[in-house]
């Protein structure tokens, strides 16, 4: 390579120009008149998508840690159920899991007077608890498998050294085992989080108005097909890009030299 930056190569300039031309063409000749009317709804939808993504990823990860630990070092009566859970979650479509929880539990709960009269009922009547539960379990199932490998992969010497210092087991786990396990699988976690982002539009099928549902509503109200979908794809790419950047930041903090 000569001194110029990589994006200045002739074919890249042509590609950037083509992209700019496409953007200009779509701004000029596609129909965007619906945009001002639906913009507030779209912002709300993006917010809801991000919120669901964040909550389910964090909860799912918290659930994945014991799942991974049980499979990596647990006794068989913990390892077997954890393994079965991960296999079932990873072996069936998420859409089916969401519908099973929403329609199944949703039709079961009203049959119990105790639940109908409880404080929780106003929440259980809504769709989002089922969406959060399904996405959390799904993330936990995939991540549990990742964390199993991560826990098993931490160098034995590290743990032996901590034990030799007389570290209590909980401190050892918090200070040595968990951080090292997590930093080894950071790239995988980033990829899985993007996969989780791509799973969130499925909650639109159980009446939650996320950004995907907003695009669907625009299509149904106005019969404009491509414009909302193009914008939707752009929104998801932007969010995925941000997730990738955040995880790259985390990874940059991990010291590179490995023993």
């Amino acid at each position: 390579m000569t001194g110029r930056p990589a994006w200045l190569a002739p074919h890249r300039i042509v590609m950037i120009l083509a992209l700019a031309a496409f953007v200009a063409w779509s701004a000029a000749s596609l129909r965007w008149s619906w945009l001002p009317k639906y913009a507030p709804l779209a912002v709300e939808g993006i917010w809801r998508t991000l919120w669901i993504l964040a909550v389910t990823s964090v909860l799912g990860f918290l659930l994945a840690v014991p799942l991974g630990l049980a499979q990596a070092v647990g006794p068989w009566y913990l390892a077997a159920p954890a393994h079965a859970f991960c296999t079932v979650i990873r072996g069936t479509p998420l859409l089916l899991q969401i519908w099973l929880l929403y329609y199944g539990l949703g039709s079961l709960f009203p049959q119990f007077p105790a639940i109908r009269n409880s404080e929780l009922w106003p929440y259980l009547r809504q769709a989002w608890p089922y969406a959060v539960l399904a996405l959390t379990l799904s993330y936990a199932g995939y991540e549990g498998e990742v964390m199993r490998g991560a826990f098993a992969g931490v160098a034995r010497g590290q743990i032996e050294a901590a034990t030799a210092f007389g570290m209590p087991r909980l401190t050892l786990f918090r200070r040595i085992w968990l951080p090292q396990a997590v930093r080894n699988v950071l790239p995988t976690l980033g990829g899985e989080t993007i996969l989780q982002l791509k799973a969130t539009p499925l909650v639109a099928t159980i009446t939650i108005v996320d950004i995907y549902a907003v695009a669907t509503r625009v299509r149904q109200d106005t019969f404009i097909v491509y414009e909302p979908l193009l914008l939707l794809a752009l929104v998801y790419m932007a969010i995925a890009g941000v997730i990738a950047l955040v995880f790259r930041r985390f990874e940059a903090r991990v010291p590179q030299r490995r023993g």
């Binding site: 590609m15 979908l229 998801y236």
Partner: peptide
């Protein structure tokens, strides 16, 4: 060549960053 490589990079990046559900709708209609 460099052009083909960049085009393929765009293809794999875009397809892997956009939810399958959205791609299915776009491609189905398109």
């Amino acid at each position: 060549g460099p052009v083909l490589r960049d085009l393929l990079a765009v293809y794999t990046t875009v397809v892997r960053a956009v939810p399958e559900l959205v791609l299915i709708l776009i491609l189905y209609f398109a």
